[in-house]
Design a protein around this nucleic acid. Structure first.
Lengths: 203, 203, 203, 203
DNA sequence: CTCTAAGCGAGACGGTACGTCAAGTCTTACA
DNA sequence: TGTAAGACTTGACGTACCGTCTCGCTTAGAG
């Protein structure tokens, strides 16, 4: 998100960036994000409310969306990566429940939806979100499913990459599309549906 | 999308809206939409390029997003609702392919993504999109799957509403999330995955 | 003010103008004039509040200012032309007091000021105001002073036309310029000043 | 007129206002003022013709009227405060002639009339005009007449404040009311009338 | 008793201006 | 050199009027 990721402060010359300033910026942005949503996280507003110069924001953040993302990460993102038990069904349930809990939480849900919405017209933001959120998530999911397949709990012929979209992607769809509710029951139903098909002909 | 949906023109009173003007508006908006994406479909720009008063736009369209949606519908939306054969697998394949074709078409894909993106910060737009797009689609899908289940091709215990998100929703996810490709192969893979699980235990 | 002053209704053809409509227009305009001042008497507002088509207003009134003037005349203008006693000093005092009372009345004063203000950028309105207000007033004043001069109460060498501006005009100045109060005391002071000079050298 | 009158620029912080921009604004406004009158001095028009952002105008000027006033001051206002000789009659004549010359000049006359007209519906503008124009004028006039009275040229009982309106105010009346001509002859006539009354009974 | 011109309500449309908000860029001074 | 403060541009939004232009209904006197 931030711009200076690579620059290592270039030999202590000049006035050093103020941590205090950065903190105030992110805190303010987080508040605005919470109160009014992504679309209200503007450089203008945050600068004014944080008592900070707009120039400073331009220096550290590429765009308002990027700022919002940084604030979100800084304040609301908590990825409590649940442990894997060895049983795909149990793991799936746990992971999806935790995932859905995040997406459907009244505070963070709309934020994530908003961020993904903004990303539709800002490829860079999309990439930033992908790097910090969706990609890691997907990798974890792939790993989980892969293990399940290896262990024989999932059919060998299954396409794991696609299955990820059929589980986690389905949740994103419920989050981003107007109709349909996203709750833990949905997470359970996803798993149930998968099991239902697998055990169907077994009966 | 348009504002006057409900009013039945109240018995010929007043000067009738100019079809010519309306046409120019939608055409221009469609062009802008194609060239620059949803976020560039602004009242200002469309009015200027269509040689139409901005006021007229405000009269007929609630917001730029709404205008973009109307233009999209008017010009790019073609729902060729494929026929149902009686075989779920064939039907699923056909429907999903047609669906994916729409979403992944280089012209319409980004438009839909952009519209859904805007809808994240405009509930009314979300509802409009739902009414004209996603809801009908979902209803068709539900129907299709329901038939399949009734016919016994899908396990009786399956949750159809959820399965829709696991198939069509997965496509939306691929469309809206940064990583992952959306093509007809993906559509096929979705169906294949489903079949794989169902036939898995049969072996 | 009204447009059709000259046209003699062209041989009774067609539907006659509705008195009811005209009444509603003028009443509404008068209310707006009272509540918000001349600058708020707009065709739009009056038409809406009177439940009348804007077209009708355009038909009968040349401009919003003109409408305001008509409403003012219709509702607030009362010229109680005081009688002449034969003594200039008494008459002057009476006339000026009555005049000032009109101009300084909290309701009508600002209206007149506003109308004269609008007239600065609308010559036609200026002429309309002149015809119905200022010119008659001036003529009465000239007559009064003329009589006084003939009777020998005012020096023969005095320029009556100019003196009118020094008395009535002074009141207009107080009305239209930011500084200076306009009240009956001012009217008296005007007369007193005039007498003071005349009797000065007599001492 | 300008907004920042009071703020003492707060010790060199921030980018200083561009003199060039300010010059272009006032020049353009002055031209529009000359060509089309006060009512055409609009933020839109001036911004466009000056090649300046409308925002900048909003920053420095409270209202179009205020801008017009500033332009007027900047370009057309020349107060050549004539010297006082010691003789009221001579001074009065000189001052009033100079005053009338200003008001009746084909360029500035209508401007002043227009400004005073706008002020009728804009109290703040009224105050601004008062501060820069009418009040100073009035003070000079009062002083002049006061001196005359002290010197015995005017009757001791005269109300100087009122007399100002009978002389200068009369000129304003001629300027602002439709009927009546305003020229130097009028100025002379004002003085003549005053002298006529004073010397009337002396004969 | 119809014809017809005008009055009228309703509303579309173009145009101009206002006032606001935000994104960006640039410039100056200070720590 | 980072930061604060602010000027300026650009462009969009939304509102308010103005003035003009259809429509179609209504009304009353002329034929």
């Amino acid at each position: 998100m931030e711009r200076n990721d690579a620059e290592p402060a270039k030999r202590g010359r000049g006035r050093p960036p103020s941590v205090e300033v950065r903190r105030r910026i992110l805190e303010t942005a987080a508040v605005v994000l919470l109160e009014n949503g992504v679309s209200e996280v503007t450089f203008d507003k945050v600068a004014r409310r944080a008592g900070v110069s707009r120039m400073t924001l331009y220096k550290w953040f590429r765009s308002p969306g990027s700022l919002a993302l940084a604030a979100f990460e800084d304040t609301y993102a908590h990825t409590l990566r649940p442990p894997s038990s060895g049983d795909v069904w149990a793991d799936l349930r746990t992971h999806l429940r935790e995932f859905v809990a995040n997406l459907s939480e009244p505070r963070t849900g709309p934020m994530i939806a908003g961020l993904l919405g903004s990303a539709q017209s800002d490829p860079v933001l999309a990439e930033e979100i992908s790097a910090t959120f969706t990609r890691p998530r997907r990798e974890g999911a792939v790993e989980l499913l892969h293990a399940g397949r290896t262990r024989g709990q999932l059919p060998a012929s299954i396409d794991v990459e696609v299955l990820v979209d059929q589980l986690w992607g389905a949740c994103y769809a419920r989050l981003l599309l107007p109709e349909g509710v996203l709750d833990e029951a949905f997470a359970d139903a996803l798993v149930a549906n998968l099991r239902a098909t697998i055990h169907a002909s077994a009966d």
